[in-house]
C-alpha cells in the first residue's frame, strides 16, 4: 500500500512539475518536454492505481498503453510545429 502511495505521489509530483514548466517557459523544446513530463506523471498515477487492486488491474495498463500512443503522436506533431516555428524566427532574423 505504501509503495502505491509513493508512486502515486511521484506521479502527481511529475504532473505538477510538468505544469510548472509549461507555465514558466516560452522555449518550444522545453515546452514539449514539459508536456511529456506531465503525461509521464499521469501515466505513473494510473500505473500506481492499477497495483492498488489484486490482481493488478489490466484495464488501466491497457489505458496507459493507449495513452502512450497518443502522447507519442502528439509529441511528433508538436516537434514538427516547433521546428518550423524556429526556422521562421531564424528567417525573420536574417
Amino acid at each position: 500500500m505504501s509503495t502505491t502511495l509513493f508512486y502515486l505521489a511521484i506521479g502527481i509530483g511529475l504532473w505538477l512539475m510538468g505544469l510548472h514548466g509549461l507555465l514558466a517557459t516560452r522555449q518550444s523544446i522545453i515546452l514539449v518536454l514539459a508536456i511529456n513530463i506531465m503525461s509521464s506523471g499521469t501515466f505513473m498515477v494510473m500505473v500506481a492505481l492499477a497495483t492498488h487492486s489484486d490482481p493488478v488491474d489490466p484495464v488501466l495498463q491497457a489505458l496507459v498503453v493507449t495513452g502512450l500512443v497518443v502522447a507519442v503522436s502528439a509529441t511528433a506533431l508538436a516537434l514538427r510545429l516547433a521546428a518550423s516555428r524556429r526556422r521562421r524566427t531564424e528567417d525573420d532574423a536574417t
Binding site: 504532473w15 506531465m38 499521469t42 484495464v59 488501466l60 508538436a78 516555428r85
Partner: peptide
C-alpha cells in the same frame, strides 16, 4: 503550436481526473 500545447495540457488534466475516478 500554442493551441497544441494547451490542448495536450488540458487532456492531461482530464486524464488525471479520469484516472482518479477510476
Amino acid at each position: 503550436f500554442n493551441y497544441l500545447l494547451l490542448s495536450l495540457a488540458a487532456s492531461l488534466c482530464y486524464l488525471l481526473g479520469v484516472a482518479l475516478l477510476y
